[in-house]
Amino acid sequence: MATLETVRVRDYMSTRLMTFTPEMEVMNAVHQLVKSGHSGAPVVDASGKLVGMLSERDCLQIALVAAQDTCVAGPVSQYMSKNVETVSSDMSLAQLAGLFTQNRQFRRFPVVDDGKLVGQISRSDVLRAISHCC
């Protein structure tokens, strides 16, 4: 029987992700987030390397620019969080659960292997694994 020690992030991560590029106009990204109902998305360069995350919290900075009555706020790179904590697809879900409890504000982690974004894993993915294993 599988346990959270033997189950890996790759077994439960999402691989079909909405992503943004650093050059994208941030208001276009905001519109996509609102339309999709997502609260954030990874930002990747042309080679697929993770360079940041754009979250709802990051987007709230746009309110300061939007108050100036403009709909052009600048590129995603101007607003994204650049110091992103990531996990490997080989990490156990037990280790991942520990990270989620230590970093209570995180809802998800980008999954990176060999410098490339390969997926994303959320707290609800871990709960799904717990439900399957227990």
Rank of each mutant, 00 (worst) to 15 (best):
M1G: 15
G52F: 10
I130R: 07
H132C: 05
A2W: 09
G37H: 08
I62Q: 06
Q61P: 00
M53C: 00
P22G: 09
S88N: 08
R107V: 01
D113T: 02
Q68D: 11
A94D: 09
I121M: 04
L96A: 13
T6P: 03
R123Q: 12
H132N: 07
D114Q: 13
G98K: 07
K82D: 01
R57Q: 05
M27N: 11
V34W: 11
V9K: 01
L4S: 13
I62H: 00
R128D: 08
Q120A: 02
R8E: 13
V65W: 00
A41Y: 11
L64Q: 12
A29E: 06
K49C: 05
V111A: 09
M53N: 01
R8M: 11
K35Y: 08
Q78N: 11
A41Q: 00
E85F: 13
P22M: 10
L117H: 07
A29G: 02
L96W: 05
S55M: 12
K116I: 05
M91P: 00
N103E: 12
V87W: 11
S55P: 03
M1L: 12
L60E: 03
A73N: 05
N28R: 15
T3C: 06
L99V: 03
V111D: 11
S77M: 05
L64H: 09
T6N: 15
S131A: 12
R107A: 12
R108E: 13
Q61K: 14
E5P: 00
L33C: 06
S92K: 05
S131G: 05
M27W: 03
G37P: 02
C133N: 09
V65R: 13
S89E: 08
G115W: 04
L93G: 06
R123P: 09
G115I: 02
D90N: 12
S47Q: 13
V87I: 14
Y79Q: 08
R8W: 08
Y12Q: 06
M91Q: 06
R16N: 11
R104I: 12
Y12C: 06
A41R: 00
A41N: 03
V9Y: 07
K82S: 08
V72G: 00
R108P: 07
S81K: 12
T101A: 13
L17Q: 07
P42T: 02
R123G: 07
R16H: 08
N83Y: 05
R128S: 07
L54N: 07
L96P: 10
V118K: 08
C134E: 13
C134V: 12
G74W: 04
V118A: 02
A41I: 02
L117T: 09
A97H: 08
L127M: 15
S39F: 04
Q120E: 14
K49H: 15
V112H: 09
A63T: 06
V84R: 10
T21N: 11
G98C: 03
R108T: 05
